[in-house]
Design a protein around this nucleic acid. Structure first.
Lengths: 254, 254
DNA sequence: AAGTGGTCTAGACCACGTC
DNA sequence: ACGTGGTCTAGACCACTTT
């Protein structure tokens, strides 16, 4: 596909049109479209920069700049000498990419997920708004506990659009011995690309207190997360209760 | 200064030496050194890419890549057609760059800082470790409240190395009607470049409850922050108690 | 018109991994 | 030896701002 024409027309109308975007962003968009369409699967290599340059009829440097931006978003991973790979939540290094909770002392242990329930329901007002679906549309709700070294630290309630997660069952969750997003990617073809968290301090209600084995009323972190896939489409809404007696939420500000 | 020689020697010893870094990173380092030395002041333009290329005897593209990385760290700001500027906390857009707290409803209001106390002390074990100074070294402690629309929402206790903040007084803080970091930059020549926060949920003690006008025992966010200047030198340690009834801590995960 | 950063190209060479 | 991404260069042209 030759996109040069797009650039030229765009470049010419740049002053009048706010929709102008440079060539490398058009290439970026085309590569993202190919990724979304599943042309290259998570964990696989994508074609070399030279091949993509030929395919899109631009120079290698322009493809490079497009890939640079996609790699900056953690959607592609460059490996010198080998090629550029589609990032995957099956990769151990990406596995708990979105979990910011770390132990106060001691090493960075990978937590273990223990699913408790999984059932279907209709989306309420809030879930519908967060997931950008119709109120009353089918959803799947999952409850689970995250344990660090056998200690229950996080109690999650997870809301998923039913349409995208047909066939998700408690048994499937329990038999999957890796991260949740790795399951979503592998079984449902959904790649979690970015998320936004809203954090508050709340008093533990009865349920959270039981699950986390703390007294009722203990101060807990309430972490609400909306997770997005391609085209900023929300595909998960969850609320986690974090016990922060021996752990803290770590955040780098730049 | 000609750095080409560095590259060549470095390039040759690349395989044997782990200290190799590409030319553009050496340029980046030199530009950061010049910034740290105060060669260009916050808010001012730095020399054009062409001038810097001549000065360092490299191509413009190499300078560009160096500046790109520094701009990505929010230390420089590019402005097409005008030049590249040294970022400043006096810039309204940078003013509350590190504050992640936003109102539940309503617009993004800039909070107002109300300093309460400012006194000198000797660093305890914890403050010394966080600030990377000797235990017992002089420090300055500031207490203040942050108000959103007249409501007290954040109670801060701020620890600063005494050596770097000589002459800081409560009066100075109270008469400064802009952000704290803007004061630090303007009066003490200290640029806050990045920070790391550790977040927990805690029950409000008597003092925090009084300041934030909430019942004792209310769940609050405890936000500990260490802020760094050039060369990753820590220059501030603070703990904030955030009242999250009508506000939340917003965090983007990528 | 002149100067700045932004984009695009083409070519050379280096570093890394595989064959 | 070969192919990949990584670095560096030089030059052309575009877009934005100021003179």
């Amino acid at each position: 596909m030759d996109v040069r024409k797009f650039l030229c027309s765009n470049a010419r109308m740049a002053k009048e049109s706010p929709t102008f975007s440079p060539l490398y962003r058009q290439i970026k968009s085309l590569i993202l479209q190919a990724l979304e369409a599943g042309e290259w699967r998570p964990g696989q290599v994508i074609p070399s920069e030279q091949e993509l340059a030929l395919r899109f009829n631009v120079s290698q440097g322009t493809v490079r700049k497009a890939i640079d931006e996609i790699a900056a978003d953690n959607i592609l991973v460059r490996k010198q000498g080998k090629g550029t790979y589609v990032a995957s939540h099956n990769d151990p290094r990406q596995m708990f990419r979105f979990l910011r909770l770390v132990p106060e002392d001691g090493p960075l242990i990978h937590p273990k997920s223990e699913p408790l329930d999984c059932w279907r329901a209709k989306a309420g007002q809030e879930a519908a708004r967060m997931l950008a679906i119709e109120s009353g549309a089918p959803i799947v709700i999952v409850r689970r506990v995250l344990k660090f070294d056998a200690q229950p630290i996080v109690a999650d309630e997870i809301y998923l659009p039913g349409e995208l997660f047909q066939g998700l069952t408690l048994e499937m969750l329990q038999s999957w011995n890796s991260s949740l997003y790795s399951l979503f990617e592998t079984r449902f073809g959904l790649r979690m690309l970015r998320a936004q968290e809203r954090i508050r301090a709340v008093a533990a209600d009865r349920e959270a207190a039981d699950l986390l084995q703390v007294p009722e009323g203990t101060a807990l972190l309430s972490v609400e997360r909306v997770t997005y896939t391609y085209a900023d489409k929300p595909v998960e809404w969850r609320r986690g209760m974090y016990s922060t007696a021996d752990h803290y939420y770590l955040n780098d500000l730049t």
